[in-house]
């Protein structure tokens, strides 16, 4: 049996709509992953500290407020400050315009899943990209 993949799902910033985050949480659960669901209105600091304490393989950030260009890179920045970025995959999802995606990826977000993406695509991406080499011994 392989190691269980752990994913932290969080909503950074101030929008209060978590339907999408819940759909993803449920899909990952059904794919056999442990989902740490942290709820609404979190700061990047709270997200990063939670991700470290939970030792997750991925952080999935759902955002619909339009503040993604600040909040998503800020999570990456803080993970780097904590020397945790190399172990944790950062993913984004929600309402994010196509033209913003390239620069978000440049800033260290591994992938952005916009509306309409099949949950299977997200599941497969996580399975294929988690940086878990250090943890399996």
């Amino acid at each position: 049996m392989g190691k269980t993949i752990r994913v932290l799902i969080a909503k950074p910033g101030l929008d209060g709509h978590d339907r999408g985050a819940k759909v993803i949480a449920r899909a990952l659960r059904d794919a056999g992953m442990e989902v740490i669901y942290t709820g609404l209105r979190l700061t990047p600091e709270q997200i990063v500290q939670s991700a470290i304490q939970e030792d997750v393989d991925a952080v999935a950030l759902s955002i619909l407020s339009g503040a993604h260009n600040y909040l998503l890179p800020r999570v990456v920045e803080l993970l780097k400050e904590e020397n945790a970025y190399d172990d944790i995959l950062v993913l984004g999802g929600g309402v994010i315009p196509e033209e913003d995606i390239p620069q978000l990826k440049e800033k260290g977000i591994a992938e952005i899943f916009t509306h309409g993406t099949s949950t299977q695509v997200t599941i497969d991406f996580i399975r294929n990209n988690v940086k878990n080499s250090v943890r399996c011994s």
Partner: peptide, 18 residues
């Protein structure tokens, strides 16, 4: 059935996270 889980206790503890 799947070994998956939703761990949702942190929702009530976010103030302590930092």
């Amino acid at each position: 059935f799947t070994g998956g889980a939703i761990l949702g206790d942190r929702i009530r503890m976010n103030k302590l996270a930092t």
